[in-house]
Computed example of a mutant assay.
Amino acid sequence: MTDTGTDAERRTGRNETQEERADRMWVELLQEIRVAQTGVQILFGFLLTVVFTPRYAELQDVDKVIYIVTVVLGACATGALIGPVSLHRLVSGRRVKPQTVQVASRMTLVGLILLLATMTSSLLLILRVATHDAFVPWLVAGVVSWYGLCWFVVPLWTRRRYTTN
């Protein structure tokens, strides 16, 4: 293999050009998005059907508001997690892969945050309807804390602990 890139194009630890790195990161990002997209689309599809059930009319007003907020959050999460596909399609072939990866990565992070909010409000609604107990907010807070730990705290700790940049 001949060295066609400059030292500035190289990243420590890998022998790849900026374009090769962008290609690799794009493939990795797509794999991550596939997992999140599947989850958000199933959840969003389920949420869309709730309003058509007989039980919906019996919900308290506050539960209907939680439902509406949840559906809107789910729609926004779906948009953010599908957005990178549209972004790639519209800029493909324009030689902006590194920038595309960066923007798509940010969209994915926003999508994950919106997915967290969707799951939180879904859980709140379901537990309110199922139990009507005062411990529901505490239970939801515990689950959200768990998501936060798994999705953000551990990855950020790992990044800080094991990387230099």
Rank of each mutant, 00 (worst) to 15 (best):
A117Q: 01
V65I: 12
L59M: 13
A22F: 09
R11E: 13
L149Y: 15
G5H: 13
A80Y: 06
E9V: 05
P84C: 10
T38M: 10
W26Q: 15
R14Q: 14
V72A: 14
V71C: 02
R10Y: 12
L139I: 14
A104R: 10
A80K: 00
E16D: 11
V144L: 14
V140E: 08
I126F: 15
W151N: 03
V62K: 05
F46S: 01
P155V: 09
A36P: 05
T164H: 06
R10A: 10
T53K: 11
L116Q: 07
V96D: 02
M107V: 06
L116E: 12
W146I: 14
C150M: 14
R160G: 07
I113Q: 02
V51G: 07
T158F: 09
Q37N: 08
F135W: 15
G93W: 06
Y162V: 07
V27D: 11
P54A: 07
A75G: 10
G83P: 00
T100L: 11
D63H: 13
G79K: 12
V72K: 06
S86Q: 05
K97W: 04
F152E: 02
Q41P: 00
A22W: 14
W26D: 15
P137G: 03
V136Q: 03
L124R: 09
M1T: 10
L156S: 14
D63Y: 02
A75I: 03
F135M: 03
T70D: 03
N15Y: 11
V129L: 08
T70S: 08
F46V: 09
L47I: 05
L87R: 09
R94S: 11
L139S: 12
